[in-house]
């Protein structure tokens, strides 16, 4: 009797392990590598003054479920607007307090999916040109946008993301400053670069 129970337990344990392995082998998660260079730039080009606000406070993840790259994927990335630096203290304060109102909405985020992928080789690197669709959120307003970017496979478990897009401030209920020394274009260009490291299996 005892050997039968042991055999049955082994069998059930085997099924459980198989289920776990099957599920884990299909899920791939990448997170922003906080030890590698990363930057988000918010660029305003106005007739009288051009400036860039910059921060390296970027975080988030990319996740997919299949060995086939990016299949059933989703991602979420966010930028801490409280650390946005324009190089001038007063301008930083104005941007945070008057326009972005970061006490209420401290982050800008983009959540969505990669909907199209094209592979190419560039200087020995495997590069994927990707098209994404998702929801960009800033100043408490969410809007659906599309963003194109590149994914560079640098080494096993490490990739670099670059993307650029632009938003219009009125779309997000951000009033445009009119003070003489601080003019903003209503169109803000946003550029991001960061690294992702694979974390599944850790």
């Amino acid at each position: 009797m005892a050997p039968k129970i042991i055999n049955r337990s082994r069998w059930l344990f085997g099924v459980w392990i198989l289920l776990g392995l099957a599920a884990n082998s299909l899920a791939v998660e990448w997170q922003v590598d906080l030890t590698k260079p990363r930057v988000a730039k918010f660029i305003s080009r106005a007739p009288l003054e051009e400036f860039e606000g910059i921060t390296e406070d970027i975080d988030g993840y990319l996740y997919w479920e299949d060995d086939s790259l990016f299949k059933n994927n989703e991602f979420y990335f966010e930028v801490n607007l409280n650390t946005l630096d324009t190089g001038i203290g007063l301008r930083n304060r104005h941007m945070r307090e008057r326009y972005l109102e970061t006490d209420k909405w401290p982050v800008a985020s983009y959540q969505g999916k990669i909907v199209d992928v094209a592979k190419r080789d560039s200087a020995g690197l495997t590069v994927y040109e990707v098209q994404t669709q998702g929801t960009f959120s800033v100043h408490g307003v969410e809007r659906d946008i599309e963003v194109a970017g590149t994914v560079e496979m640098l080494e096993a478990g490490l990739m670099r993301i670059k993307a650029a897009f632009q938003i219009e401030l009125p779309d997000y209920n951000i009033k445009i400053p009119q003070v003489m020394f601080f003019k903003l274009n209503k169109v803000i260009k946003i550029r991001v670069m960061f690294h992702l490291k694979r974390v599944d299996g850790e």
């Binding site: 998660e29 975080d59 993840y61 996740y63 979420y76 966010e78 801490n80 409280n82 974390v199």
Partner: peptide
């Protein structure tokens, strides 16, 4: 989906 990433609490300026 078992996403491991956890949202950080930004500390403000």
């Amino acid at each position: 989906r078992k996403i491991r990433w956890k949202k950080k609490i930004f500390k403000g300026p």
